[in-house]
């Protein structure tokens, strides 16, 4: 299977197994050139296995896979020169300095940027942006966990690859380092690099990714842009229950006024209402409150977020586990 120029990665019915356990159960993926694609998943969903397969670290047990037009496992020498990989866990020779580590990585690269005796601007710039410029003579073993993550990102990106895999790039970083990392990733995307990202921080995916897939139980549960993922999800209207109304009163009233939508009472006097048409529901709700002389305190309207989508998928997993 070869990719069309529009796609950096194409997978069809991709399967990976550990003995009898099938960790990835037939997924289809199409990642366009130049886009940032976030692969999210519940614990044990199979995203690390998927990433490792896309990176060429392991062979797919079924289906077809093409990365930059080649099989990433059997044609590793053709794929790797165009790919940068930031591993989930950093692995370095601790006794080397930061500069020696960067220089070694460049020397192992076929990129013209790795010419001997010259550290390319991309490396210098990335180290400056990720606050490692004053650590060049520090041995890697002496770096903090966050600094090692940043060094990892430098190595993955210094040769300006066409495709970059970022496996939880900001795990363990403080907010400032995370912001710097996001800036660098956005610059990469701006330069046309295709980026595949996994993260446990949903706001990271919301902020950075063009498209998002959420894996669950070895399959892709949902996939699309953020807008597409939350499109069919209800908007939440919440307010404090007027003291003169009981829970039963408000339940009855809202079913009549707003319609048969999900209604839940939280924290005693809090009311949360899931609606599909927020404008219509809010208009009716406020009209009803005005006409009945009720005052709705702390009223808020929140659009569905990635977190809601994720929670719904995770809840499905929990139900399945309970059934088992």
């Amino acid at each position: 299977m070869t990719t069309t120029p529009d796609f950096a990665i194409q997978a069809h019915d991709l399967r990976c197994a550990y003995g009898d356990f099938e960790a990835v159960r037939g997924i289809d993926l199409e990642i366009r050139s130049g886009e940032m694609f976030a692969l999210l998943g519940t614990n044990g969903a199979g995203k690390t296995t998927t990433m490792e397969t896309l990176e060429g670290h392991r062979r797919a047990d079924g289906g077809t896979l093409s990365v930059l037009g080649h099989d990433p496992y059997t044609e590793r020498p053709r794929v790797r020169p165009r790919v940068g990989i930031m591993l989930q866990e950093s692995g370095f020779a601790g006794e080397l300095t930061v500069a020696e580590t960067v220089d070694m990585w460049l020397a192992l690269s076929s990129s013209p940027l790795g010419e001997r005796g010259r550290r390319p601007d991309t490396a210098v710039e990335a180290m400056e942006r990720l606050d490692l410029a004053d650590r060049t003579d520090t041995r890697v073993v002496q770096l903090s966990g966050g600094q090692k993550r940043r060094l990892d990102l430098v190595l993955a990106t210094i040769t300006r690859p066409d495709l970059v895999f970022l496996d939880e790039p900001t795990t363990g970083l403080d907010p400032e380092s995370r912001r710097r990392t996001w800036d660098l990733i956005e610059t990469l995307r701006g330069s046309g690099t295709t980026i595949v990202l996994t993260t446990h921080y949903l706001e990271e995916a919301e902020r950075l990714a063009d498209r998002i897939a959420i894996m669950h139980a070895g399959r892709i549960a949902v996939e699309g842009t953020l807008a597409e993922l939350v499109h069919d999800r209800p908007t939440q209207i919440s307010f404090r229950r007027p003291a003169e109304l009981s829970s039963a009163d408000i339940d009855r009233a809202l079913r009549t006024v707003v319609g048969p939508q999900r209604l839940e009472t939280v924290a005693g006097d809090g009311v949360v209402l899931d609606v599909t048409d927020a404008q219509q529901a809010l208009g009716r709700l406020l009209g009803w409150a005005d006409s009945q002389g009720h005052r709705l305190e702390n009223i808020t309207v929140s659009q569905a977020s990635l977190s809601d989508v994720f929670a719904q998928i995770a809840a499905g997993q929990q139900k399945q586990e309970e059934l088992v």
């Binding site: 670290h57 950093s90 692995g91 370095f92 020779a93 192992l108």
Partner: peptide
Amino acid sequence: SRRQDLYLKRLRSGESS
């Protein structure tokens, strides 16, 4: 020990055969 330190995986994530 290089495997334990994930240094081998690091090398293998690059172009080296």
